[in-house]
């Protein structure tokens, strides 16, 4: 079975849920799937499919990169850490000094999406810096 066949339920789901800029390529024994989902829920569905096909993700034959970049209209994001405060850093990287913190559940201002991983934010206290995007959920 080829990799495209193995992961067909996943790519089919991506097509059905209208993932934009969907790219599916196979190279050196790895299938690379890239695209942009409209919502985090769609991204989660696709990862659930991946989990079904390759439980615990141990096959090392897929790199699934589904982005959920909020559109430019989004200016508020919610801090969705497990429970802890979210560090706000001077620059995009955990090697950067911490310049502030945002509480779990707090809604803060999204200044820009500096990279896929790091977003520039401003807290209600006016502290500005970079936070890890995985812990930020766009407010509708």
């Amino acid at each position: 079975m080829t990799l495209s066949e193995k992961y067909k339920p996943l790519t089919d789901a991506a097509t059905t849920s209208e993932v934009k800029d969907l790219q599916v390529r196979e190279q050196d024994g790895v299938l690379y799937i890239d695209g942009s989902a409209a919502t985090g829920a769609i991204k989660d569905q696709l990862w659930a499919k991946y989990d079904q096909i390759d439980p615990n993700f141990t096959s090392s034959d897929l790199v699934l990169n589904i982005k959920t970049s909020p559109d430019a209209a989004v200016t508020k994001v919610k801090v969705t850490t497990d429970s802890s405060n979210l560090n706000i850093r001077k620059g995009p990287g955990t090697d950067q000094p911490i310049v502030g913190k945002a509480a779990h559940g707090e809604i803060i201002t999204l200044v820009s999406q500096a990279s896929e991983q790091w977003w520039q934010v401003r807290t209600t206290d006016g502290e500005e810096g970079y936070a890890y995007a995985q812990y930020l959920t766009p407010e509708a």
Binding site: D28, N56, T58, V63, L64, N65, Q117
Partner: peptide, 11 residues
């Protein structure tokens, strides 16, 4: 996966 690795060896 979002970091564009060549492969992820998940052990």
């Amino acid at each position: 996966s979002s970091l564009k690795p060549k492969r992820i060896e998940n052990k």
